[in-house]
């Protein structure tokens, strides 16, 4: 079992998407590239799972979508984060830090320490 390109679960993907969109609005493909780049290629996004995730987030009001022109004058659907989305990002981030802090704590736990 190797630690190759890792897989992401749904909740984490949402958090990462929100983070990316918080920087600037992007279309779906661009978003996939950006997240991969931001993670230094550790995460390989399942492109097919991106769109359902975006749809879910749109339904919940965390992102909004509109059709705009790209640099090459092509029509693409751009997603941007909403105020509710920003709030969600903050909350998810806090939760992530709590959880990963706890996991780190367990991994570093030495015998004899109580």
């Amino acid at each position: 079992m190797g630690f190759g390109r890792a897989d992401l679960l749904q909740g984490t993907l949402e958090m990462l998407v929100l983070r990316a969109l918080a920087l600037e609005p992007m279309h779906g493909w661009g978003l996939a590239q950006r997240i991969e780049a931001m993670s230094n290629s550790v995460f390989e996004i399942q492109q097919g799972s991106l769109y359902p995730a975006l749809q879910r987030m749109k339904r919940k009001g965390w992102v909004r979508a509109e059709w705009l022109q790209t640099e090459n004058n092509r029509r693409a659907r751009y997603y941007s984060i909403t105020a509710a989305g920003e709030k969600r990002l903050t909350a998810e981030r806090a939760q992530w830090e709590r959880t990963s802090g706890a996991v780190n704590g367990i991994l570093q736990w030495k015998r004899g320490v109580l």
Binding site: L9, T12, Q95, R98, T99
Partner: peptide, 9 residues
């Protein structure tokens, strides 16, 4: 690192 605990929280 894939597991993201706390889905139920």
């Amino acid at each position: 690192m894939g597991a993201y605990l706390g889905r139920g929280e």
